[in-house]
Design a protein around this nucleic acid. Structure first.
Lengths: 139, 139
DNA sequence: ATTATTATTGCAACTTCTTGCAATAAGGAA
DNA sequence: TTCCTTATTGCAAGAAGTTGCAATAATAAT
């Protein structure tokens, strides 16, 4: 199923609309695969869509995140970053050098279930960012 | 040990200085106990120290967090919040209604140790914010 | 196709947060 | 105490992100 079909099927059903801005931004996240800040997305989006504005980029990224098509995270730079939704994972970032590693959600699923049991909350979001000291910075 | 003594002992040793701005802001966090945004801190700080500026509040909060005298967190409002450092805990916030609960770090320490073992990272920071659906919003 | 509905966009103004740099003041030495 | 060093502050400008509202355009209905 292509991006467009995926958006079409899932969003129209809920009264949302499939706009070219949303397609463009989702495509950008898809192409890149990694973390992008809103302004990075804005710069790339302008290339294929010169009239797009920054507020639209911010709102669209928020929209995609709300609808689980993108993941939002704070990675310690002070800026929000977004990436395409795909495999469930978390980030562990070194608070000294900034080096980051991914952890598969499966490795933490037990802890998440435990949290759900203890609190009554459900569907605790994966893609959490943790901060620690990487092996190199532990000197 | 009082606030001032604690700052004195730990900060001066590292070449940092004990300024009235830092005292004032730490005192505000201490008084409140809960989460405060930088602008809330700024408003309160001006009452006892009219000349203080916003950049100083932002920098001081960052400084206190770096030195483990305060905890910083993103709680989903888009704004950063700070609270006095004390007991190790995490926040679990409902992504629908915003209601939040605290979880003691002890309850998750096994998961944290597991992460440290799997990744080689150490001292993974407590005070992580998780998002889920609270019992009332699961309808 | 055409029209009606309303979600979404663009614009402009605004709030939040950051950064460079000169002035200030905390802490150590004389 | 007085002077020296330099961490920290205040100022001003700028970057990042948000919000209200009228105009636009994606769907659904005709």
């Amino acid at each position: 199923m292509s991006c467009a079909e995926h958006l079409s099927t899932h969003l129209r059903k809920r009264g949302f609309r499939l706009t070219s801005q949303r397609m463009t931004i989702l495509h950008i996240l898809n192409q890149d695969g990694g973390h992008l800040t809103p302004s990075q997305v804005y710069i790339r989006a302008r290339q294929s869509m010169p009239g797009i504005t920054e507020p639209t980029v911010y709102r669209t990224l928020g929209f995609l995140a709300d609808n689980h098509l993108a993941l939002a995270a704070h990675v310690g730079s002070g800026k929000m970053v977004y990436e395409i939704a795909g495999h469930d994972h978390h980030h562990l970032i070194c608070r000294t050098c900034g080096k980051s590693v991914e952890m598969d959600h499966a490795a933490l699923s037990r802890a998440y279930h435990q949290m759900e049991g203890a609190t009554g909350y459900k569907q605790i979001t994966s893609h959490t960012t943790f901060f620690g000291l990487c092996p190199a910075c532990q000197e």
